[in-house]
Amino acid sequence: MLLLVAPAALVLVCFQIIPIFIGMNASFRDWSLVNPAKTWIGLKHYRDVLSDPVFLYTVLPNTFMLMVSSVVLSLASGLGLALLLNKPFFGRPVVRTVILLPLTVAPVITATMIRWSFNDQFGVITNLLSVLGFPEIGWLSDKWPSFSLIILTDVWIWAPWFTIIILAALQGLPREPFEAAQIDASGKWRTFTHITLPMLKPVIIVCVLIRSIDAFRTFDQVWILTGGGPARETEVFSVYAYVEAFVHLDYGKGAAAAGLGALIMLVVGIGLYKLVNRLMEVSR
């Protein structure tokens, strides 16, 4: 049995466990990429990160704001699309394929596409909004419009993921409760809120849990769209760690930021897991 899991375990150890230990080791050392002296400096990097006002008052709030808004909006859009696709109509397979396309495109490409679509000079969307008489908005240069674009891009990428999972769950639901509701003359909304949604709850909860953890480490979209700007106002945790490690070439501080992020996510993950369990019990 052990031999059967050995290849997978080896890959896990080589490409996950060892790099994590190397990273954690670096976080306690003076480990500049230029001059990796690797001198032991204890918790200095952690203290520096935790006393950095940008990390505390900009990066962490932005990260959680992105996580919550992206998950909620992706879930709402995914659920809506799944309900639409669950009904038979002409061309459904084609629509289903098209809706899933954003999931097949690399986030870097999606973010680049959105960046150019909202470019203030050449952007298709900005020009369309201008023709329609909307006031000029600094989509990429002002904090809230650019943060909204980051959320929009994340929703664009992840809504199809929710759609595909919820659609699969919808198609696996038993018919009897719906037939009973129909006999009882239950309206569509009531059927949805009292039958469909409760039966989907376990799937939705698992999706939210996985996606929340994933959203915490969002990097590509933020880096491509704003680079964390203007003046670090849209910076999130992963961009903070990346900039420290690979722009300022301070691998030690970058590793400490990543380590702190992992700890925060661990706490959030445990919290979410407990919440999930509680919700599951209530829904039973």
């Binding site: 203030d120 000079q121 050449f122 600094g138 704003t226 700007g229 203007p230």
Partner: peptide
Amino acid sequence: PPGMTTYSRDEANAIFQA
């Protein structure tokens, strides 16, 4: 352009070349 605060040389050059 008010959005110039976000421009790299590529965007600025593109506007000039256009």
